[in-house]
Design a protein around this nucleic acid. Structure first.
Length: 127
RNA sequence: GAACUUCAUCAAACGGCCGCGCGGUAUGGCGCCGAAAGGUAUUACCGUGAGGAAAGUCCGGGCUUCAGAGGGCAGGAUAGCUGAUAACGUCAGCCGCAGGUGACUGCCGGGAAAGUGCAACAGAAAUAAACCGCCUCACACGAGGUAAGGGUGGAAAGGCGAGGUAAGAGCUCACCCACUCCUAUGGUAACAUAGGUUUGCUGUAAACCCUAUCCGAAGCAACACCGUAUCGGGGAGUCUGCCCGACAUAUUCCCUCAGGUGGCACGGGAGUAAUCCCGAAGUUUUGCGGUGACGCAAAACGCAGAUAGAUGGCCGUUCACGACAGAACCCGGCUUAUCGAUGGAGUUCCUUU
RNA sequence: CGGGGUGUGGCGCAGUUGGUAGCGCGCGACGUUUGGGACGUCGAUGCCGCAGGUUCGAAUCCUGUCACUCCGA
């Protein structure tokens, strides 16, 4: 299941300003209901709701290699979290890398991310 | 064996499972998003997928656009010679200077005898000379001569000896040093060597400047096409430092309210297709030419093309335990960062034979 | 992609034809005051972002480099 990426700058601003937030050492998660979700659902040939996921990795984190590494970790963690417990659809999700992510492994980031998603009520199984 | 010099290569490897971009084949779909242009699936398989610096953006070239001749000024760049190259500020060889026992390394390495400027402090004086000293005159004050000696300075009128003199001085002479010009020999040349000749001249051109050579400008967010568009609003002309110029023209053009595709990732041809053929500032190997940079020929191999931006994750094995670091129009260099590993060539010293 | 600017005491800034590195605030000591503030006097503090070079001599000139920052498409 692929995800649409967020490209527009104003959507990032919206998510940061109005979205629900949960911050861990490695990653900060912002979630906002996607107003265009229905339209996107219709555009999609499978007719399924999707999450639009954006990655925010600041320049202060490091050079291009470090930033790429951070984005890969976030993507992999999101994928793992979705596979493990499922994620509600129809939202804008912004994952912002924080300084601690440097040198971390996937397991660490995945743990933080699933904790954040559970706290925000984004997981599908309520058990 | 030790200490070095230099050139080149590599940039952890292998296996399993999951995942990503692009291309292709099959499958699937003819729907949906959008005003339009246009965009977009699911699954399976196959192929392919970051660097030596991809970086800094310091040079050069390609490519694209600027309506249409040209000329001048300004400005900028380069700086031993000869060559290599598409071109270069790059590279190669040589010359000169400096450093090293040596292999070798470094050099923004034209002109100060075209002109102008600047040289603090110290010092008597800084491009021109009399403070002390020496000599002559004079009782003395002082006047004149003198650049051998002292002291200052980064730099003080070339060095040493003899002659000469009141004391001295290239003032004269011999030798040496530097420099200008000329000649000869060698070299394509820079230049080197030898001889003659003029002169005895501070440094600075990474101060202005002079000389020689070169340069139109802007950049893929360029630009082209489609759409907006038979609409509305705003701005101003059209080689992008300044001036001159021919003017008869050509066309209005650009921005915004709205974006999309191409450019763009080998190209062309044949074929339904697999595939085949041809071509290229690619790489490697071999051969030939050249001291070398490099050139020519043949063969083989390879071809990332994203657009919030694709190479990752987990597990296992091995080892030297993994540095610097991520393509964004393309190519040739330069500069900077970098854990280490391997190989070639060479130098000096020690030991043994 | 293209074009600029700035790095100087703890902080904010000066520093031009290259010649002993300065100002304000702050800091320390002393004086004044019963004590503090204010005021006065004195003082300390600098590899002039880093590395080379030109020059007798460099914050200044040249080359390279690092960091921060601004502008345009």
């Amino acid at each position: 299941m692929k995800n649409y990426a967020i490209k527009e700058h104003h959507l990032y601003n919206k998510a940061f300003r109005r979205g629900e937030r949960y911050v861990t050492k490695t990653v900060a998660v912002y979630v906002l209901r996607d107003y265009a979700a229905k339209r996107l659902m219709l555009a999609n040939p499978q007719k399924q709701y999707l999450n639009r996921v954006g990655l925010s990795v600041g320049k202060r984190l490091g050079g291009a290699v470090v930033r790429n590494r951070a984005k890969r970790l976030l993507r992999e963690a999101y994928r793992a979290a979705e596979k493990a417990c499922g994620i509600k659809k129809g939202f804008l999700v912004v994952l912002a890398a924080r300084d601690e992510i440097r040198g971390k492994k996937t397991a660490d980031v995945t743990r933080d991310l699933s904790r954040a998603l559970r706290a925000l009520g984004m997981t599908e199984d309520k058990s």
